[in-house]
Design a protein around this nucleic acid. Structure first.
Lengths: 263, 263
DNA sequence: CTTATAAGG
DNA sequence: CCTTTTAAG
């Protein structure tokens, strides 16, 4: 089973610019999207109901913001929206889809800005989400199942995860408390950073490059999109890649798809 | 002397899309613009100070709205902003530039919408502008000079001036009272519709096509951009054309330049 | 720099 | 259907 995750930065714009071509060509069985930024009715038919795919779209309540989705070739056995936190119930930031013995989640963790209310919102999300992850792992493992939380976590974990880590030590997305929080996800919560586990020593592979300046051409990126799996599924990860080439020429998002093959 | 007038529908967007190429290639001596929708500081240098041109930009007070400009190869002898009406003093809708014995004005008459305050504003503008035109013709002719008011008048005069005149008899831009007002400009005020005078029998030539549907491809346009001249200058008009081809391929505005050669 | 938005056209 | 704006990212 192959799973891809990509923040499309507006599915309507991405669909116009090349996402649909990528979707048509991908060999993935499941595709998680973040920042759909549309309700299903606003999407072109080829994005809302592409032939051969089952589509779950969870828009945010605020028009044109957030929104997650899961495209799967198989018909989901179950779908759950949100993770129980009242504040984020309608925010379009989390959905779980059951596909056989694996639950695939699409997560769009809030992006923050130091010194602003948006950073506080990001922290509240993190605070509520970690205990959920802990509880959820117990549940899925007790049921003999696996969980992979795919998405834009908006945090680079280690120095290898962003090109300019020195210059970003006070930037939201690489703050010590954010990195420590991710360490708890990969530590006490018991999840595995699948791409890093397969590529322990490499810089990146980055999954996001700012549209400003020449960040993409210089590969001055951040690895903030993850597949975060329970250990049983993580052990089945055979290969992983960031589809940076999907962004070459006709770049259709500031993120690139993060794709993992599970045996 | 050749004069062009064109509503650029946002000079920043037009500059990105091909206006600068057109400006570099034109043989015109004077170019009047409407809907600049920017203050000079927001313009790229090639638009704010193109080599070989003197530029007068009159932005509107409301950010991103209206704004007229006159580009001339000769250095203007004088510049006057507005036409004396208090209400429209800072609206970025009228400027006169003296160039030798000819005064060239760039006009952006408000666009209206039937049944709304915007239609009332358009009517107030028309009511104040006609007496100004009458007085101004006396002044310039007494001084042995000429005046041509170039711009987007937002009114089609006669049935020949828009493709779908039957369907637009209740639309702002072709209302009986608007058409009658233009008849007064060309009648009692003593001005000449230069393009119509040179092409008395032809449909159009249209100068504006909606971006909606296939209006441009079907030439379903309106002739709402005029060169309205005092009779002395009008008599010197040798040829006129709408540069519809300037919009082919890389269309950089929903209007096309209206260009007249004066001997 | 790009995506949304809203109002204007 | 395009421009602008403002907010968000």
């Amino acid at each position: 089973m192959e799973i891809s995750t990509v923040n499309v930065n507006g599915l309507r714009a991405a669909a116009r610019k090349g996402f649909l071509g990528w979707l048509g060509a991908t060999g993935a069985d499941v595709v998680c999207l973040q920042e759909v930024r549309a309700v299903p009715e606003q999407l072109p038919r080829e994005a809302a109901a592409p032939p051969g795919w089952h589509v779950v779209v969870v828009p945010g309540e605020v028009k044109g913001r957030a929104g997650v989705a899961v495209y799967s070739r198989a018909d989901p056995d179950g779908v759950r929206v949100g993770f129980g936190a009242e504040e984020f119930a309608g925010s379009g930031r989390y959905v779980e889809v059951d596909l056989g013995a694996v639950t695939v989640a699409s997560l769009y963790l809030p992006s923050g800005e130091v010194g602003t209310a948006r950073q506080e919102e990001k922290e509240r999300f993190m605070e509520a989400f970690l205990p959920y992850l802990v509880r959820r792992r117990s549940e899925v493992e007790a049921a003999g199942r696996d969980l992979v939380v795919c998405g834009d976590w908006n945090i680079a974990h280690r120095e290898e995860d962003l090109r300019n880590w020195r210059g970003n030590r006070r930037s939201s997305g690489f703050l010590p408390e954010e990195r420590a929080w991710l360490s708890r996800v990969f530590g006490e919560a018991g999840y595995v950073d699948v791409v890093r586990a397969l590529h322990p020593d490499q810089a990146g592979p980055y999954s996001w490059w700012s549209y400003r300046g020449r960040a993409f051409d210089n590969d001055a990126g951040w690895r903030i999109d993850y597949q975060v799996a329970t250990p049983g599924l993580a052990a089945r990860a055979a290969s992983a890649r960031v589809e940076r080439a999907a962004s070459h020429g006709a770049r259709w998002s500031d993120h690139a798809p993060v794709t993992v093959s599970y045996s």
